[in-house]
Design a protein around this nucleic acid. Structure first.
Lengths: 133, 133
DNA sequence: CCGGATCCTATACGATACTG
DNA sequence: CAGTATCGTATAGGATCCGG
């Protein structure tokens, strides 16, 4: 077993394979890391929001994908949907406790990316010279 | 601006839209959250590894996707590739500093998912009753 | 052993139109 | 306003063969 710089946990938890193909973790990971999953979860981490609000926040999302993503996240227990039987309809989406935990892990990731993306794609565009760091 | 339960930072950094469609952040996010991106980065966070090792770790990945994912991550400056001109070839992949930073953010996420996936898909399978939490 | 090239399929996704 | 239904397309991704 190898011991490198980044050591805190007793043992690397994914030493022999991240996890098996098709296992529940893979499924959830795919849901979360779907094209819009991260964006929706991050958007909702600010607080409950309506459908139309989410559409604006996740710029570029189609109605179909918003519906599909929300449904998946709701089925996974990350998002709660509350519809009010009024005309015109009003539906609020919010994070469950589980969803808040997840979003709390996603926010640093998204922030990091937001802070480094320009450098990264800049380097990509320059054809990725030789030195990575 | 709304103030709800989860308030800690001075201001929510993604208050009016996560970030614009097609911007560098979106591109990098898509690379990282591609089907195999997370798995490869997490796998490499344990230390440098060879092609064949990565294939085992990321169970179920095809050669094509491994090559493609590694190339993308390398172009983004997250992964370093070192090929030794010997027969048979030996190629080692490792994380750059940037890649290590990213992986450090990914690990908690993957660990959390690994710890909750069974509950989550269990609930999903039971048709997602009514209460999310 | 490490991949590149090619072909093919599944499906994720977007655009549009329609409904309660 | 908040969706659903349908269709068409782009592309992600897998299988296989080949080459250094």
């Amino acid at each position: 077993m190898k011991v490198s710089t980044q050591e805190a946990a007793p043992a690397f938890p994914f030493a022999d394979g991240i996890f098996p193909a098709g296992c529940p973790s893979r499924i959830v990971l795919d849901h979360v890391t779907s094209k819009w999953g991260v964006l929706i979860l991050v958007a909702l981490s600010e607080g409950p929001q309506r459908w139309s609000e989410l559409r604006r926040r996740a710029e570029g999302i189609s109605e179909k994908m918003l519906a599909q993503t929300l449904k998946t996240l709701e089925a996974d227990g990350f998002v709660r949907r509350e519809a009010q039987p009024i005309i015109p309809p009003r539906v609020d989406y919010s994070l469950t406790v589980s969803g808040q935990e997840l979003a709390a892990l996603l926010l640093p990731l998204v922030s990091w990316i937001a802070g480094h993306a320009d450098t990264i794609v800049g380097r990509s565009a320059r054809k990725a010279a030789g030195a990575g760091d």
